[in-house]
């Protein structure tokens, strides 16, 4: 028994050392051959015309005011808490403190109310993907649902995707009020390797839709 234990311990240490080294090699190989930058929005998102009308006829009646609690985007596996965010010192909209959460701008209407609800989220944190990492893979028709404090749910479908450079950002168009309920999601896009910052914003517009038949996003 005494002769067995050291050998057993040595064996375990050998196995652990091999495992750690192999893992290190795998991580390096993945970094070298399999980088995963955030999914890019479609090219049409960059061809957005500034004159495009953005308020078609309403598809369901507006909801009364009630603050949002949870957002779900089944296509990209997002189901996360909604924090409240206010205007930042530079006049833009502040980001949620937790990168895995999204932020509802309290100066905008609540989701489903008449007007433009603004929700912002990080694409990535300093260490990896954040809540809106997959936003670029959404397409027209992708569903978004928001649970509200009064227990009701506002259902939306994506109607437009636009990428706007940070210099020359059309603030009135993106943040401006609308005559019908509208949900605007914003995150970053276009990494600048030299300046180590994102050059653009990805802006997703969604409009009310009826809840899916049979509850397609139930259990998510």
């Amino acid at each position: 028994m005494t002769g067995f234990r050291p050998r057993g311990r040595r064996g375990a240490y050998t196995a652990a050392a091999i495992a750690f080294t192999t893992s290190a090699l795998v991580v390096l190989a993945t970094a070298l051959f399999g980088q995963h930058p955030p999914p890019a929005p479609p090219d049409t998102a960059r061809a957005a015309s500034i004159d495009e009308p953005r308020t078609p006829a309403p598809r369901s009646s507006p909801l009364p005011r009630s603050e949002p609690t949870v957002i779900r985007i089944p296509k990209i596996g997002v189901r996360t808490q909604i924090e409240k965010v206010t205007r930042s010192a530079d006049g833009s909209v502040d980001m949620p403190t937790d990168p895995d959460h999204v932020g509802w701008y309290t100066g905008s209407v609540t989701p489903g109310e008449t007007g433009n609800t603004v929700v912002v989220g990080h694409l990535d944190s300093r260490s990896g993907p954040a809540a809106f990492y997959g936003l670029g893979t959404l397409r027209k028709g992708s569903r978004i649902t928001v649970t509200r404090r009064d227990g009701s749910t506002a259902h939306f479908a994506v109607t437009a995707m636009e990428v706007w450079a940070k210099d020359g950002f059309p603030s009135r168009r993106v943040y401006g009020p609308t005559m019908t309920p509208t949900l605007t999601l914003i995150t970053c896009a276009d990494w600048d390797d030299d300046r180590h910052t994102y050059r653009s914003n990805l802006v997703i517009t969604a409009e009310p839709t009826t809840s899916p038949p049979g509850g397609a996003d139930r259990g998510f």
Binding site: H36, S92, H122, D124, A130, S171, D193, Y198
Partner: peptide, 19 residues
Amino acid sequence: KMAPAAAVAGGMGGTQSAD
């Protein structure tokens, strides 16, 4: 309400500096 101006700072680059 005051209208926001300017783009948001929605990323820190954690998925970009993969190396």
